[in-house]
Design a binder for these strands. Structure first.
Length: 566
RNA sequence: GGCCCCAUGGUCAAGCGGUUAAGACACCGCCCUUUCACGGCGGUAACGCGGGUUCGAAUCCCGCUGGGGUCACCA
């Protein structure tokens, strides 16, 4: 929008203002005056109010578009975990946002392993991170295992590249060797802390004479390299989520970019890789925001273009502290072990810090790609809520077909001895499928399913205590159970419709309320008070089993053994 | 402590100067039902505080408070 038009727009908006006043009620003389002014303006210019509204809508859609689409530069984003532990849910979300952004812009999602810390990096962690990402369905286009034109993708394999870039900086006198020992620096930091100063490097080695540097280097004295940072001016980080963030250069000290052991620090390696891998947008956790001015300075020192940044907020524990082990599951693999479905976890992660709009919060990966907007990611940290994750999991879990659930749960069934590993009996499998179908709608996860299925496979050795109090209390309850058993033993065919008919006729004969028979029967048959429809359970259990369980329960009630059994 | 970021119900989160301040989870009722779950209907519950700017502020500005991050030869 060019400048002269702005004035016109201002007037247009004033008119809209006036229209608002009319609708919301005229309260003040001022508003009345404004209304007349508006009417006058409209008449003078021959605009109807509808026309004006129309103009505004156009202006909104003009400025509301996604500016990314206009740039033809390819989107390249990366997720760069350090293999020093499991993939954290915070990391998973960062990876997901990167992935979404890449997929949405038909860009490239790069997986890079930031393992410059050789002491803490482990192969097991590397494998676990890859497994977790795959499980979540976050596929990468370039990475250590799949290769790509910008490899290698493990920093430990890129040492020659870093050395080369360091040489470049040395030649341009952008860095200088620093001989201060860690202990010395530690002492200085502590002193600064005590005196209330910012703990910043003093610059002691910055002005060493060329001779001294040469001789100390020749003597093989241990040293690091620091970047010369201008203390004048300011560095601006353009952040897609937060807008411009300004840092005074005086706040940035001559930070270390090369360690004494001859390896680059994270800052150096990361910037070199991002530049050389032509990363267009760095989407990473908020904890890096404070480091970003250093990175901007580094990119510039290296002579590289500065990529765009987006710092996504952190995920906090319910007490608003940093998420840690004591808050329960924090890694993707733990959720996986707990029976959380990847679709559910990924969906939940999206909702943490982003609102897809509309009312639907249960959305597929494809819908997520479509609705995701990086610039609309929340600025504030989110507290994670297991309850909502579990609810989402239930949504996905129940939506699965019984056959799929059967396949997934099979190993667990075998382990419990509920099915033979090589079961091929058609009736048995169909029966199992039906049992699952009835329990599935009442299950939030695999553990619920197992619980709901238990009594089909195991004898009832305990009865729910509150159920006993309520349903087994009547003096004639054991007698009723025996009569039910007797009646059932004569039912044929033993199918839901027939069983229910017989059951209900017995209710009538006895002249009691349905619940008086139904509830004790359920408890006798399953040991619990909840579950699928009673007649469905009966048919699945089979006539003989029902009869014997009813008689056993009756016997236990009569002998007072009902609460003692284990 | 310096610097940086942030602030709407218990939690997630709409909102972009005029709204009865959405929606979801959780919680509480009611309905459905042989129980439970699902589902349906309804309810409780929020703009951290103080100053401005404005006819009008959750929305813009300043301060405070609170939370978080960072200041490593970790990433």
């Amino acid at each position: 929008m060019d400048f002269p038009k702005l004035g016109v727009w201002k007037v247009v908006f004033s008119i809209l203002d006036g229209a608002w006043v009319v609708r919301t009620g005229i309260r003040t003389f001022h508003n009345v005056a404004l209304l007349w002014l508006c009417l006058w303006f409209i008449m003078m210019h021959g605009h109807s109010p509808q026309r004006v509204v129309c103009l505004r809508k156009e202006s909104v859609s003009d400025t509301g578009g996604n500016s990314m689409d206009k740039e033809d530069k390819q989107v390249r984003v990366r997720f760069a975990p350090s293999p020093t532990g499991a993939l954290h849910i915070g990391g998973a979300r960062t990876a997901y946002f990167n992935w979404l952004f890449a997929r949405q812009h038909k860009g490239v999602f790069v997986l890079r392993i930031d393992d410059t810390d050789r002491a803490r990096s482990t192969e097991a962690s590397y494998q676990q991170i890859l497994d977790s990402l795959r499980w979540l369905g976050l596929d990468w286009d370039e990475g250590p295992d799949v290769g790509g034109a910008y490899g290698p993708y493990r920093q430990s394999e890129r040492m020659s590249i870093y050395t080369e870039q360091l040489e470049k900086l040395k030649q341009q006198n952008r860095v200088y060797p620093c001989f201060c020992t860690p202990e010395e620096l530690q002492r200085e930091r502590e002193l600064a802390q005590r005196e209330g100063r910012a703990p910043r490097y003093s610059g002691k080695c910055r002005h060493l004479s060329a001779d001294e540097v040469a001789s100390r280097l020749a003597a093989g004295e241990s040293h690091v390299y620091r970047l010369r940072v201008e203390s004048e001016g300011e560095t601006v980080v353009h952040d897609i989520i937060r807008g411009d963030v300004v840092f005074q250069n005086a706040e940035i000290d001559d930070f270390i970019i090369w360690k004494a052991d001859g390896t680059p620090t994270y800052h150096l390696a990361s910037c070199i890789d991002d530049a050389l891998m032509e990363i267009s947008h760095i989407v990473r956790a908020e904890e890096h925001l404070s480091n970003t001015p250093r990175h901007v300075v580094l990119f510039e020192a290296l002579g590289f273009e500065v990529p765009q940044f987006a710092h996504v907020p952190m995920i906090l524990a319910p007490d608003r502290s940093k998420l840690s082990k004591r808050h329960g599951a924090t890694s993707v693999s733990e959720y996986r072990e707990q029976g959380i479905l990847p679709q559910a976890l990924i969906n939940y992660l999206l909702l943490l810090g982003f609102s897809p709009g509309e009312d639907n919060e249960v959305l597929s990966r494809e819908q997520a790609i479509e609705s995701f907007r990086l610039d609309q990611v929340a600025k504030h940290a989110a507290v994670y809520d297991v309850k909502k994750l579990e609810w989402l999991n239930a949504q996905y879990y129940r939506a699965q077909s019984p056959d799929l659930v059967l396949a997934q749960a099979w190993a667990g069934f075998v382990e419990r001895g509920w099915v033979a590993p090589d079961e091929t009996n058609r009736e048995r499998l169909a029966w199992l499928r039906t049992a699952i179908e009835f329990v599935l709608s009442r299950s939030r996860n695999a553990a619920d399913l197992v619980e709901g299925l238990r009594y089909y496979f195991q004898p009832v050795n305990a009865y729910d205590p509150t159920g006993v109090k309520k349903q087994f209390a009547d003096s004639d309850v054991s007698d009723r159970l025996r009569r039910i058993a007797k009646r059932l033993s004569e039912v044929s065919p033993f199918t839901t419709v027939v069983v229910e008919k017989e059951f209900r006729s017995l209710i009538e004969e006895l002249g009691v309320k349905g619940g008086k028979l139904i509830h004790p029967t359920r408890l006798a048959l399953t040991g619990v008070t909840v579950g699928p429809g009673l007649f469905d359970i009966m048919v699945l259990l089979g006539r003989d089993e029902c009869v014997s369980r009813l008689e056993l329960a009756a016997h236990r009630i009569e002998t007072g053994n009902v609460t003692l059994t284990q």
